[in-house]
Design a protein around this nucleic acid. Structure first.
Lengths: 108, 108
DNA sequence: TTCATATTTGGCATAATAACCAAATAAAAG
DNA sequence: CTTTTATTTGGTTATTATGCCAAATATGAA
C-alpha cells in the first residue's frame, strides 16, 4: 500500500476541478462570467463555436461547481460562482512569465 | 472575428499550465515536492506506478515550468518551483466543499 | 571496459476529450 | 395547438492523454 493510494480519491477530486478549468474556451468564459452573467447564446456568439459545444462546456463548469445557473424564460444565464478561481489564474500567469524567461535564458 | 479569437493563444497558454496540474498523480507529487525534493525512484515508490509513467508525469510538470530539476550522480531530483500552485489548491478545496454542500442540499 | 542502477524515450493499446450535426426538450408567442 | 427560439442531449469522429513494456541513455562502481 503506497502513500498515494491512501489519498488517491482526494487527489482525483481535486484533479476533476482543475480539469474543468483546463480548457481555453472554458477559461475565456470564466473570465467573461466574472464580469457579468451571460446566457448561452451570448457566450456562443463570443466564442464562435457551435452552441451545443458551448452548452457542453458550461455543463462541465456547472458540474465542477464553478458557475451558477439561472433560467429566465427561454434563456439560461450562467455566472461565476467561485471567484477564487480568478486568483489562481494570477499564479498561472506567473508561471507563464517564468516560462518566457526560461526561454530567453536558453537563447542567451 | 469573435472576442475569443483575438485572445485565444493567451487562453491556450493558461490552459496548458492548468492541464499539467489536472491529474491526480501530478497533484500528489506537487504536494510532496512542496515538502522537499525527491528523486524519480522515491516518487515512483510513493505513487506505485511504473517508473516510466512517473518520469513522464514529471516531464509534464517540468515543461509547464512547475518544477525544478537537479541531477545528482545517477539520480534526478525534482522540487516544486511555483509555490503559488499550492495556494490555488486551497481554492480547489473550497470548490469541493461547496460541491459537497450542494449534494447535501439536494437530498434535503 | 563491463556491470549495475537510475532515468528517459519510443511504441502500442486503451480511455477520455472535444467538435460538429441532428434530434429532443423547454418555454413563450401567435 | 402550432410555431419559434433557446438549450440540452445523443451519436460520430478525430485528437489527445495515460499506462505499461521494452529499448536507449547516463552515471558511477567494479
Amino acid at each position: 500500500m503506497k502513500i498515494y493510494d491512501k489519498q488517491r480519491s482526494r487527489f482525483e477530486a481535486r484533479a476533476s476541478v482543475l480539469k474543468a478549468l483546463a480548457h481555453p474556451t472554458r477559461l475565456f468564459m470564466i473570465e467573461e462570467l466574472a464580469k457579468k452573467s451571460y446566457c448561452v447564446c451570448e457566450l456562443t456568439e463570443m466564442v464562435g463555436l457551435d452552441i451545443s459545444t458551448v452548452s457542453k462546456h458550461l455543463s462541465i463548469l456547472k458540474n465542477a461547481g464553478l458557475v451558477n445557473v439561472e433560467k429566465k424564460g427561454k434563456q439560461v444565464f450562467y455566472s461565476l460562482r467561485m471567484r477564487c478561481a480568478l486568483n489562481f489564474l494570477d499564479c498561472v500567469e506567473a508561471v507563464l512569465r517564468e516560462q518566457a524567461q526560461d526561454r530567453m535564458d536558453a537563447i542567451q
